[in-house]
């Protein structure tokens, strides 16, 4: 007989608690130091005016927030850009991911090949992907416009016209990330028992009906997770913007994450950048809570 069963039950419980805390403590300690601490600090910083170059700071209260929300037009542009980016990227990404997953979920030979193709950008460094696409999207000598000119279309100057720049960044970002969502959908599709769809087919349901009544509802949890991951991923996009447009032209692709970096580490407005970081925090916290509510509502 083992010691665990011989010992009194109180000790057992205490022991379990001790092991529990020991098991979580490494990651929890680091998390407190490198995440929670800085998170508290960023709230504090956001109430100061702080110049990184001269290293002087003083307390200004909510001045930075007032600045962002009322005095600074750029902030609202940035917020709108971030939302446009998310609104463009998320549906496109998810529809494409779902479509590809439905087409490629069965393990036939061709499917495996295409899965490899669509997943390849995911394992490619984002920097590499952005660099290559910056080349492909050059105005006249870029491959995209050269291809378009073959069919008689005079392509725009993709990365240097405000609307096209946003579209280009969204498009290349979708290409980069859609593969992971596709794989997650494929995994979910493969876990749907064959009998469900077979039974429906025997009852005379067509493909669309099967998808609507069986597949789609069963995919709902996956869809929710993918949506949250994709929305949050779209709010933290940094490297694509940094490398492809630098936030331009005319601030058309200046999104929140990039704006924080620029204000904090380029113009050294540490206080203002911290206020922006707090706003990003609140935005994402709201999304996380919304997801939890949605999840609970479904149950």
């Amino acid at each position: 007989m083992s010691a665990a069963i011989k010992g009194p039950s109180l000790t057992l419980k205490a022991r379990e608690a001790i092991s529990g805390w020991l098991f979580v403590s490494p990651i929890l300690t680091g998390f407190m130091i490198f995440f929670v601490g800085p998170l508290i600090a960023v709230f504090y910083y956001s109430t100061t005016e702080w110049n990184l170059l001269s290293q002087q700071s003083h307390f200004v209260g909510i001045e930075n927030y007032v600045d962002a929300l009322t005095r600074n037009d750029t902030f609202w542009d940035v917020l709108v850009n971030s939302l446009v980016f998310a609104a463009g990227l998320v549906p496109l990404n998810m529809l494409l991911a779902l479509g590809l997953a439905l087409a490629l979920s069965r393990s036939v030979r061709g499917a495996v090949f295409f899965r490899t193709v669509f997943f390849a950008p995911v394992i490619t460094s984002a920097v590499a992907w952005a660099i290559i696409w910056t080349f492909l999207l050059q105005h006249e000598s870029g491959a995209v416009n050269r291809a378009l000119s073959v069919i008689g279309i005079n392509g725009p100057n993709w990365l240097h016209e405000p609307h096209w720049a946003m579209a280009s960044v969204i498009f290349t970002r979708v290409l980069k990330t859609v593969g992971l969502n596709m794989i997650l959908y494929i995994a979910a599709l493969q876990s749907i028992p064959r009998d469900y769809t077979e039974a429906a087919r025997l009852e005379g349901a067509n493909g669309w009906e099967i998808f609507r009544r069986i597949t789609w509802p069963l995919l709902a949890p996956t869809t929710l997770v993918i949506m949250v991951i994709t929305v949050v991923g779209s709010l933290k996009v940094f490297d694509h913007i940094y490398l492809m447009t630098g936030g331009g032209p005319q601030n058309a692709t200046l999104v929140l994450a990039f704006y924080i970096y620029e204000q904090g580490f380029k113009f050294f407005n540490t206080g203002y950048a911290s206020a922006l970081a707090v706003i990003l925090f609140v935005l994402i916290l709201a999304l996380t809570i919304l997801q939890t509510i949605l999840k609970a509502a479904r149950k």
Binding site: V42, L235, K236, G264
Partner: peptide, 8 residues
Amino acid sequence: PEEVTIIP
């Protein structure tokens, strides 16, 4: 995202 805490 890491942008939130990068400054501190």
